[in-house]
């Protein structure tokens, strides 16, 4: 039960952070790199990435759908966040088994945190997931063959910031003592 409470707190914190602060950063900061405005940093895929490995498939898909629609509702982009997050939720078990050497089904519940997976495996796992999510997200957002370099550019820059923020959040939400296997 303690566990469920933890995920709810995390959901609320991350959503407030994304909607109230990150969604505004893009508009307010006049930072330009090569003349292209800097995109919105997206931290919310983290909510899906840190779910336990043996979570019910339908619960996870529904959770992704709810997060996606909430974000769409607040940023006037119906279906954009939702579809990319649902894609990520579907691919996550496969990507997780790629970067986690032991057989997940035998072990049971594994929280893919930095302390459980190890720093390097965790970083590869996060980077790969974020790459898939961002590439799909920005392709859908830009949606033209003319601007393929722009898509790659946005994916790369936004991805670096997202991976950095998720890694930092691991230090905030988990400490070395509170590992629950």
């Amino acid at each position: 039960m303690n566990n469920r409470f933890f995920y709810i707190i995390q959901f609320v914190l991350v959503m407030i952070f994304q909607i109230m602060i990150l969604n505004t950063v893009e508009v307010k900061s006049a930072v330009l790199i090569f003349g292209i405005p800097v995109f919105i940093p997206l931290i919310y895929p983290m909510l899906i990435l840190i779910l336990p490995s043996n979570i019910n498939y339908f619960v996870m898909m529904l959770y992704a759908l709810v997060i996606g629609f909430l974000l769409d509702y607040f940023s006037n982009t119906p279906g954009l966040h939702a579809s990319s997050l649902v894609l990520l939720a579907y691919l996550r078990p496969r990507i997780l088994s790629l970067f986690y050497q032991q057989d997940i089904k035998k072990i049971g519940s594994v929280k893919p945190t930095m302390y459980r997976l190890g720093f390097v495996s965790f970083l590869f796992y996060i980077t790969f997931c974020i790459l898939v999510h961002h590439l799909f997200f920005y392709t859908l957002q830009v949606w033209s063959f003319k601007n393929i370099p722009l898509v790659l550019f946005k994916t790369l820059l936004s991805g670096v910031i997202t991976v950095l923020m998720i890694t930092i959040s691991q230090f905030i939400f988990y400490s070395n003592k509170s590992i629950k296997v």
Partner: peptide, 20 residues
């Protein structure tokens, strides 16, 4: 799993392209 995914995914994309 795949069918559920495809169902939800197409649902989202349909909303996106209709409103875009």
């Amino acid at each position: 799993r795949f069918f559920v995914f495809i169902f939800i995914f197409i649902f989202c994309l349909a909303i996106f392209f209709r409103n875009n």
